[in-house]
Structures are given as structure tokens and as C-alpha cells.
Simulated assay, not measured.
Amino acid sequence: MPHTPMYGHTCDVVPLQPAHAAELHAAFSQDRTGALWTYMPTGPFQSEAAYCQWVTQAATSDDPLFFAIINKADGTAIGVASYLRIQPAHGVVEVGFITFSSALQKTPMATEAMYLMMKRALGELGYRRYEWKCDALNAPSRRAAARLGFQYDGLFKQALVYKGRNRDTAWFSILDQDWPRLQAEFKAWLDPSNFDAAGKQKTALRFEGEP
């Protein structure tokens, strides 16, 4: 899995570097409640120094393979995501450690970042299966998976323990055979003509078979 940039219209997805840490910490600190970290294996971080230490370590990892999401308008880092459980021999990879600041959540950038990562795995590298997993209690993550075209595969009960509690894990996936159809939908939705002058979408992202 190459650790190289992915460029989009509204955002870029680039290898995570220690230089991104201060901007990411500032963006994530807009969440005063710490709710952003509820379903994450890491965080919340008590200081910028603590987060910088985590980024410095994460930037050296090959699996998970971390990326920063950059707002193309101003060049600031506003989110993190990674590939993990990378299995090229089987053509399987998971997307995870998805941490979106309030500046990224529910924006075209958020959708485009996920599309760029899908496109690399399923389109450019020819992976057969692209996975999304989350805590079964994480309703926003489950909704996001469905909106992005993932199909629900099932529930792994008592899959692990984190932050002192049980986690039942919901599994979702996109298969290679579904990618051409999904890619066409993403490209149509992300086209600048789908947004008005205020940045509001004209047509919602909706995949065939969705309710």
C-alpha cells in the first residue's frame, strides 16, 4: 500500500507527519466535550504535547498506515484516517482510525477524503474487499458507512475490550464488483456543478438499493 498523497477537488489526503500535529490538535480541540474520542482506541489527549507524541509514533507505522486530511482551501490539517489490516495477498484492506474535526464533519471534504481512499484501494490497486468496522453502539459511524455505499456484513459480539468496556463490532464492506457503480455515483456527487454558490448540494449521494 503506497504511502503517497491522494489529491482531490476540495481536500488532499497526505501521509501523516509530525508537522501536522499542532493543526490537528487545534482542530480536534474544538470538541470541548471529548465526544470525538468516545469510540476511538486513543484519546482524548490532555495536551498538544501528548497528541504530538502520538502523531510522531503513528507517522512511523506501516499498518495502520496513517494519513492527514488537508483542507485544500487553506492548507490546514483537519482530520485523520488510515488503512489497516492491509492484506495485499488476499486483496483485503480496512479503513479506520477515522477522526474528523468539526471543520470536516458533514462536508464535501469528508466524503471526498473517503472516496479518494476507496479509489486508491479498489480502483488503482485492485483490492477485492474494502472494509469498515465500528463499535455497534456508534450510530453515526454506522450511518456514515451506509451513506458511503458499504454493505452491512454482520455483528461480531464481544470482539474486543477497549477503554475498559466490551465492544461488539459491526462489519461493513465494499466489494470490487460494486466499485464501478459506486465510483460513478461519487464522481457525479462530487462534481462542482452539484453544489450551489453557498456550497449546498443539489442532489444527495444515494446508492442504488438504499431506502
Rank of each mutant, 00 (worst) to 15 (best):
F45I: 09
A145F: 01
S173Y: 05
G43Y: 07
T42I: 13
L16P: 09
F186H: 07
P108F: 04
P88C: 10
D63S: 13
L104P: 02
D74C: 12
R165F: 02
R167S: 05
F207W: 04
L116E: 12
N71M: 01
A145L: 02
V95Q: 12
A59Q: 04
M6C: 12
D178R: 10
G209D: 06
E185S: 14
N138T: 07
G79H: 01
N138Y: 05
K106V: 00
G126E: 08
L24A: 10
W132M: 11
K202I: 13
E48G: 15
H9G: 04
R181K: 14
H3E: 06
L104S: 10
L24H: 09
S82Y: 01
L84R: 13
Y115R: 08
F45N: 12
D176L: 03
A58L: 05
P5Y: 12
R206Y: 01
M1H: 11
P2E: 15
H20P: 05
K187F: 00
S61M: 12
T38C: 00
G91M: 08
V161N: 02
F28V: 07
K133I: 08
A81H: 04
S102L: 12
R147D: 01
W54M: 13
K133L: 07
S173W: 05
H9S: 11
P64L: 10
S61Q: 14
F100Y: 15
G209W: 06
L116H: 11
D31K: 02
P108Y: 06
T56Q: 11
L65P: 01
E208P: 00
A110H: 09
A89D: 14
M117S: 09
G154Q: 04
A184K: 13
R85D: 13
V92Y: 04
R143L: 11
D135S: 07
R143Q: 15
T60H: 08
V161H: 04
R32W: 00
Q183T: 04
S61N: 11
F28E: 06
P140C: 01
R85L: 08
V55N: 07
H20A: 11
A73H: 11
L84F: 13
L104D: 06
E23P: 02
A27T: 07
V161Y: 06
T107F: 03
F172C: 03
H20Q: 10
E124G: 02
D12K: 03
A26N: 11
F156L: 15
V80H: 10
K157Q: 15
A188T: 12
A68T: 08
A110M: 07
G8S: 12
A188G: 00
S29R: 07
M40K: 02
L182T: 06
A19P: 00
L84G: 10
E112P: 01
G75N: 04
G34N: 04
D62L: 12
H25E: 05
M6L: 15
T10I: 00
A68E: 05
A49D: 14
G43R: 07
G126V: 06
D196I: 05
S102M: 09
P140N: 07
E185N: 11
I98M: 03
I98K: 01
A197E: 15
T4G: 01
E23V: 02
D63P: 05
G164R: 05
L148F: 14
H20R: 10
R120G: 05
Y115Q: 08
T56N: 09
I86A: 03
I70Y: 02
I86T: 07
D31V: 07
M109F: 01
P211L: 11
G149A: 03
E210W: 09
W54L: 13
S173T: 09
Q158V: 09
Q151T: 15
D168P: 03
L175I: 15
A59G: 03
